[in-house]
Amino acid sequence: MSTDKQEREPLFSAKNRKLLTNPLNIDNPITVQVLGICSALAVTAKIKPAFVMALSVIVVTTFANLIISVMRNGIPPRIRIIVQLVVIASLVILVDQVLKAFVYDVSKQLSVFVGLIITNCIIMGRLEAFAMGNKPWPSILDGVGNGLGYGIILIIVGFVRELFGSGTIWGYHVIPEAFYDFGYKNNGFMILPPMALIIVGIIIWIQRSRNPELIEEN
């Protein structure tokens, strides 16, 4: 197993800090790694579910990364996918069952997300790409970082869609009534799933204009 006896690096060395901050921008799970799109479409019609989803994903990526990273030396490569999925799914189901028994109201809010979290490819993608080959502490940081990077995009998309689609933010009306009197209308198109794709496309446009090194060949 991993015993880091020789050079102990500080907990927040430059390399470790990068693990945390890269996914927020140049290595963003949604706009650069293309992971976790389905759930990004499903939960961003309003900010609130986007926020809840972001939080749940941060928690799950962190713990799944930690567990797989601890187990990584014992997992036979041929059945690694099954092992990873079983770990994620049991974690999520267990949490859901416990919530259902003790805080039913919370579980009613969250049960929608359970399926979405299990099949969220961010979790699987990070397990496969990072936790399988790294020590527990960097894996935790990677999990938190990617969860945050995912959450930021979700909240931006949710903000735009809720503001223009329903005229509200976090459920509160922000567009003044006077606007509606002048003939302003909520854009119903905004809350349809295809608009989420188009907004993410625009976010990618903005992000890549600022980071030209991300621009693809064609």
Binding site: V86, S90, I93, L94, Q97, K100, Y104
Partner: peptide, 22 residues
Amino acid sequence: VAAILSSAAMLLKPMQERNEAV
């Protein structure tokens, strides 16, 4: 995994059913 999940499901079932009824 089967042991953990089924024991959780069995232990928590009465509480879950009560919550559902309520």
